[in-house]
Design a protein around this nucleic acid. Structure first.
Lengths: 345, 345
DNA sequence: CTGTTAGCGCGTTCAA
DNA sequence: TTGAACGCGCTAACAG
């Protein structure tokens, strides 16, 4: 039994209102080409039957689904949940609202590819993805779909279509430079790396470049494997770091989570932060503000990224529908280095 | 121009493969009623054309959309984002995966009603909502839709269909009792109240009940208006509290956010926590762990709620499709009172 | 194992 | 201002 229930259709409404389905359709859309009287008859029938428009049908015939998948690594990361929230707010306020089909990739490109393929079956109006790292097949699928594609968060080197975000490399370079300007010289990096990552790791690269351009004596990286790099990784990493490089003065972490973990481990071992080791994070999570000492971090405004992305997507969808697709656009969202106690001498 | 592009259809594939569309359909579904040889011919054609199944059509004809809206107050609350993440994980692992249509109500019942109405137009297989507080019209819409409905988070008095979560009243009562057992006698409450709330506020009620059943001398509530009650509300509330009731010894907050705010304000004013005032929260947000002093809180496992909800939804959808709808079910997820420094004498 | 037919519910198109 | 006919892409049901 595949059709559990027969909902009232437009024909039912038409019958009850004594009109044709066409008139019902027009009345529901608020077209002015319907008499007040006819309209109210229709509305009464709609109420009586509890009729609800079925969007599957127009989706099929007009190829407009009003659906946009949003693919993020995980919702358990306030940066990404903020972005999605921001997208929702804009989509929902539009005259032609787009619905979000949510997808979480678990930081896996392969998962992302699967999701892209699955969600393309719903004939989305566009697609929003995060990360900028995709399998070749995922890229190809997105390209061939000929829908607007937005890549959010870290700006890719070679965007598929539009991109909104920041350069992880630039942000980390700023952070290292800031630490240098505060007098730190021996600056390490705690992060991760994707094993399936053909493209370079932006933030790590930024660190290495900064060490070079600032003329620091030594670069030292503690790599904790595949993302997500979280609190515990930070705890472990900081211990390794101080073993491997006792002269280290400061460490930049790939995110606030390992930074927090590192600080907690320092507390545990009686290493003073920032006196023994200064610690900086990335993302300006709530934890960075509330932690003691509060964590110096790079702040990226997720809500802002979400809002701008959604607005661009709406525009791109409209442009495509009108036959004049938007030219590719790349938007850089400004970041801020927020200095707090964890790096204050 | 409503149809920006003509994607290849199953008929195109059939033509290229030299079969009928039916055979293509069967081959794609992995039905065994197709020769290996035919199947591979079909697959080759699919690849060659870059064919992607269009789910709009089966949605229309078979009334199975594979879509489940998830309505939450906000993603900027780790409890809810955890729940959604949990739901996604289960949905995505299923043999017949359900897609999540995301909706954020902004803690407004009216917004929720709008979303329910809009999303019902997509003929969802079920609906997941949070809160248990709905407008009468929203309730009616959900009831009439005759799809499985899950209410998550706080258990409603009178569930629409299935419910998974906890009793806010019970949790708060436990918290107050715990504080009492630690020697606190003058225990206040900081929270909010919906103005459009006909039903009683669960957590507030729990507080009042606890005061009564424990035989405490006085109940004192600081109400900060419409949710969400956040960090700043806590800052303001604690000041008012100590003015209005100088003898207060402990305060239970509606969430960890105002609890955190209260503690910060205490720092600012030189009031020691927990010596001058013990503070307890709700939700076990990351901030509660990382704050100093760490916050005593009630922990609800959002991921667990999400997982169980999704599993129940999958089951309910299958049951409905097979003509034997599930009986209503209410599942209570255990909570835990986590005592930390903010209430330790 | 494969093909044919019909129809899902709506909006577009054209006619009245 | 209203209505009739058609088709969107797919699959259920049935036939071969």
């Amino acid at each position: 039994m595949k059709r559990p229930k027969h909902n009232p259709t437009m024909a039912d409404v038409a019958r009850l209102a004594g009109t044709s389905t066409m008139t019902v359709s027009r009345a529901l859309k608020g077209s002015d080409a319907v008499t007040m009287e006819t309209r109210s008859r229709v509305m009464r029938a709609v109420d009586e039957l509890g009729y609800i428009l079925d969007l599957s049908a127009p989706a099929l015939s007009s190829r407009r689904t009003g659906v946009v998948p949003v693919l993020i690594p995980s919702l358990n990361n306030s940066n990404f949940s903020e972005i999605v929230q921001g997208i929702f707010e804009v989509f929902h306020g539009e005259a032609e609202p787009q619905q979000i089909l949510l997808g979480c990739t678990g930081y896996s490109r392969h998962q992302e590819e699967t999701l892209v393929q699955t969600l393309l079956q719903r004939r989305p109006e566009g697609m929003i993805v995060t990360g900028g790292l995709h399998t070749p097949r995922a890229r190809q699928l997105l390209l061939r779909a000929e829908i607007p594609v937005l890549e959010l968060w870290e700006l890719p080197e070679n965007p598929i279509d539009h991109a909104i975000g920041f350069s992880g490399s630039t942000v980390i370079q700023d952070m290292v430079a800031r630490l240098r300007s505060r007098g730190y010289r021996n600056i390490a990096y705690i992060g991760g790396h994707s094993t399936d990552d053909t493209r370079k790791n932006e933030r790590l690269a930024g660190y290495q470049q900064a060490v070079e351009s600032l003329g620091l004596e030594r670069a030292h990286v503690i790599s904790m494997g595949h993302p997500p790099i979280t609190v515990n990784h930070g705890c472990q990493a900081v211990v390794r770091l101080l073993e491997e490089w006792p002269a280290v003065e400061a460490v930049v972490c790939v995110s606030d989570l390992p930074a927090f973990g590192a600080i907690m481990e320092c507390h545990r071992r009686g290493w003073k932060v920032p006196e023994r080791l200064a610690v900086a994070g990335f993302g300006d999570f709530e934890i960075a503000r509330s932690c003691w000492p509060a964590i110096t971090t790079a702040s990226i405004n997720g809500a802002e990224i979400g809002h701008r992305a959604a607005r661009l997507m709406v525009e791109a969808i409209a442009a495509r529908a009108s036959g004049a697709p938007l030219e590719r656009r790349t938007i850089t969202i400004p970041h801020a280095i927020i200095e707090r106690e964890s790096t204050r001498r």
